[in-house]
Design a protein around this nucleic acid. Structure first.
Lengths: 143, 143
DNA sequence: ATAGAGCTTCCATTGCACTGGAAGGTCAAG
DNA sequence: CTTGACCTTCCAGTGCAATGGAAGCTCTAT
């Protein structure tokens, strides 16, 4: 099938599929004389694996490594398990981080009811956020 | 004081301070005849506010808005409170998302003990990650 | 006078996973 | 034959918050 149909069947865009190919996470497919890529059913599975692995928190770089191991004949299970262990630990760290932040935000919000807006001085910009709020311990927050 | 001392006193780099100025989050300071920036004590407080607000999860763009309100004479407390409310909700969403992901990773890890690596077929790449793992519901995960 | 620390500007790069657009080739239907 | 959908490549941009580096000016101490 051509790239458009592969895209339709996997729910990705043709852009994304070409991008995956360019980063080595999807193998280069055969070409028609016209230059059009043509894919077989294996490509559908491959893309399914990529999305499933992403859903498990693996980056494309990690997925590429896993796939490379597989494509060079090995069974990447041990490797994948190590990745999952690392990611579990990362997630625990991040969840704790965000939970702390969530508590901090709530403390600031509850200040709002105890403070009089009229007493907010320009020098502080906003007294809701005290200058000593939190010493910076690298909060990684992305919306 | 000059930018280097301001950097030392706030724990930032001169690069970061100039960057904050370029994005409008820190006002342009006065200049010496040499062209060197010179800062007063207010700059220390301003940078303290920026870091504290970042620690509360506000983006530089949001902080810039807050500061603009303050610099144009208003009290941004209401605005800040709205931001904090939004961020609290975002954090709840993200924490729930990561907690789900964490559980998913744990399920995959526990599969490892029930599966025989020898039965892992090349077509699956790695049976630890089943193709139907998770329908894609936009997991935002950044290390 | 000269070394070297510190300052200036400007432009590019990082990481991650895409996304957008331009310019042009191919193919099937009408 | 033409229209339009689909395909090709390549380059650039997105968001976020910086960070790196080059070329050149200033200041302080010896």
């Amino acid at each position: 099938m051509r790239i458009g149909q592969l895209a339709a069947r996997t729910g990705l865009t043709t852009k994304t599929i070409r991008f995956y190919e360019s980063t080595g996470v999807l193998p280069e497919p055969g070409r028609r004389p016209s230059g059009y890529r043509h894919y077989d059913e294996a490509a559908v599975d491959r893309l399914g694996f990529i999305r499933a692995a992403q859903a498990a928190g693996l980056s494309l770089a990690e997925i590429r490594n896993v796939i490379t191991v597989r494509d060079s004949g090995g069974a990447p299970c041990q490797h994948v398990l190590a990745l999952l262990n690392t990611h579990a630990a990362d997630l625990d760290r991040r969840i704790a981080e965000l939970t702390n932040l969530r508590e901090q935000v709530d403390r600031l919000r509850s200040r709002a009811s105890t403070l009089d807006p009229a007493t907010c001085s320009p020098a502080d910009i906003c007294q809701l956020i005290p200058l000593d709020a939190v010493p910076h311990h690298d909060v990684h927050y992305f919306a």
